[in-house]
Structure formats: C-alpha cells, structure tokens
Amino acid sequence: MSVHGVMEHIAALVPAGSRVLDLGCGTGELLAWLQKHKGCTGYGVELDDANLLQCVQRGVNAIQLNLEEGLAIFEDQSFDVVLQLETLQHLRNAEQMLRETARVGRIGIVSFPNFAHWPNRLQVLLGRMPVTRTLPYEWYDTPNIRVGTHADFEILARKNRLRVLDSFGIQDGRMVRTRPNLMASMAVFKFERG
C-alpha cells in the first residue's frame, strides 16, 4: 500500500485553512503537506526522538508528549481538525483518546488497520492470527494492542455519541466505499461530537 495514497485520501478530508492537531504525527509529512498545499496551521504530537527531529527539520511544530498521558495540554475545541492516523491501535486508553479527540477538535479523523479485511478473516479461519502488510507483526510482539474492525468502530463511535460524517476503507492506496469492512485493510472515519 502506498503511504502517499493513504495520505492523499486523508488530506482530502481536511478543509483548507484548518487549524490541525496531528496526534502521533510521525515525521510530520502530512502536516508539512497540509501547511504547504492547503494553508493549514497547527501542531503534531510525537513521542519518538527521531521523528520529532524530522518534524523540526521540516518546519513542522511538534510537541513531544506521550499520548497515553492524555491531551490535558490542549483546550476544548481548540482545533478545527484532530488527526489520529494509525495511532489509536497502539494506545492502552484508546477509547479515552477517542473522546479526547472529540473534545479538542471540531472534527476528528482516525485511521486504523481493519482486522476484518478478508485476508485477515481467512487467516483466522485457518487458525492463525493474521500477518499481513497492514498487520505485519506476530501476535506476541505487535504494537497493535487494540485490534478492531471497521464495523467495530461504528459501534464505539455510537457509544461515545460521535456522529460519523464520512467513513471508507483504503486498499492499495485506493478508496473503498463498497463493503469496506471486508474489502479494505485500512479503515478511515471522519466524525464530530454528536
């Protein structure tokens, strides 16, 4: 799957000129792109030293924080968009973070590996935990401590009174709108507080 393909679809969800908070921003690639091409401003949050350094090199504002410690440093509704891309599945307090995302931003955008993608289902059916390009780790050393599906997220969103504005899957860099729970390895949701 092309990272650029994923980034393109996510970037398209961010309105031009938005104030953006990117939780787990990595090397700041997406924020730099949003700043340059869509006139966005904002910050990335990143824990890893090497990633933080790359953000500074790119000219992206980056705050070194551990997301497990929460988002108390950010005020309610202080961002137009809060991004949480392929981060949620690493967090012990995933549900709390989802709520915090909705508190801090007017719009939340999350992406995560979809455990219900058909090759994963097949591997489980054959009795093994899936190891794929999107879920490349063995069960005993995976950083993905929260494995969920596209369909699961819809239920979690409802439970937390989040209104889903858009959702789709991404497979091989392409957007999947038909049966994304089965057909896409990555799930994307755009939501607001209900």
């Binding site: 104030r19 030293d49 500074v56 504002n61 980056a62 070194q64 924080l65 440093i73």
Partner: peptide, 17 residues
C-alpha cells in the same frame, strides 16, 4: 508550552530522556 498553544503561537517542544 500550554500557554503558547493557548495563544496559537508556533511552538515545538522536545522532552529529552
């Protein structure tokens, strides 16, 4: 950092271990 964020100022913050 929080005070700077509240004022929408550009800030980067490194917490070196």
């Amino acid at each position: 950092v929080k005070a700077l964020l509240d004022n929408k100022l550009d800030v980067s913050y490194a917490e070196i271990d």
